[in-house]
């Protein structure tokens, strides 16, 4: 273990009754330097996933949002539109149940479900090892695009790379204008923000300009697409964004 920092001083005898030691420990304490990033292991696995995607010519998009923002409904529209021109695989993260995976059935996409329940009540995010475990169930070589539908949560998924090339975030205008300031890590990490449920705008006391001001404060240059899974608004533009990110 080359990491150990060796002390040159005082490796001698330590007596239990040593008057100079008030720590309550029977022996002295040595501080060693480690300097390891906590996410190193996850990031190594993410790099391995990304290498597999690159080798297969697949672009991977990590799709994140709070619960109920409309990820799955938007994905249904997305798959419908891309069917026949872009070959799509989905990694579907869900704490429990296959309901969302079932909702994506029948659109020609290969879906691999990960349930994150693990005895502790379920993980709140997908990490790189979880996504890796889902890959054998997908025909990567036959895909152009892999969408990783993360667990609905504005906090945890932002901290974990899964091997994606790009991050897309679905935000629903029913969530309130202040969300970018409350959850800056996710908003800052997004390469595109879909402003969803935009059809509800006339019915809400929602200040769209205030939302954009807050969004620009945490992620000044992020592209935005206003979408509605109900009317289909913005889905074409979103599909263009997805297609443009495909490998040549």
């Amino acid at each position: 273990m080359g990491r150990f920092h060796q002390h040159d001083d005082d490796h001698g005898h330590h007596d239990l009754d040593d008057k100079g030691d008030h720590s309550g420990y029977a022996t002295g304490t040595e501080r060693i330097e480690v300097l390891e990033r906590i996410f190193d292991e996850n990031d190594r696995m993410a790099a391995a996933n990304r290498a597999d995607f690159d080798a297969a010519g697949v672009t991977a998009v990590n799709l994140m949002s709070s619960p109920g923002a409309g990820k799955t409904a938007l994905l249904r529209h997305t798959l419908e539109r891309l069917q026949g021109c872009v070959r799509v695989g989905i990694v579907e993260g869900d704490i429990e149940t296959s309901i969302d995976a079932d909702r994506l059935d029948g659109f020609g996409a290969a879906v691999s479900l990960i349930n994150t329940a693990n005895g502790f009540g379920g993980e709140c995010h997908l990490d790189a090892p979880m996504v890796r475990s889902a890959l054998p169930r997908l025909p990567l070589a036959e895909l152009d695009l892999l969408i990783v539908e993360n667990v609905g949560n504005l906090v945890c998924p932002a901290e974990f790379q899964v091997g994606e090339h790009r991050r897309a975030m679905v935000y629903a205008i029913t969530e309130g204008e202040e969300k970018p300031l409350k959850y800056p890590v996710m908003f800052r990490s997004a390469d595109v923000v879909l402003v969803n449920k935009i059809d509800l705008l006339p019915h809400l006391d929602f200040d769209l300009d205030a939302f954009y001001t807050n969004l620009k404060a945490v992620n000044p240059n992020v592209p935005v697409i206003e979408t509605s899974a109900r009317t289909g608004q913005g889905v074409e533009q979103w599909c263009d964004w997805l297609s443009n990110r495909r490998h040549g």
Binding site: H14, G28, T29, E30, R31, I32, E33, V34, L35, I38
Partner: peptide, 8 residues
């Protein structure tokens, strides 16, 4: 993780 305090 910067440092660890270990028993000598």
């Amino acid at each position: 993780l910067t440092t660890l305090d270990l028993a000598e």
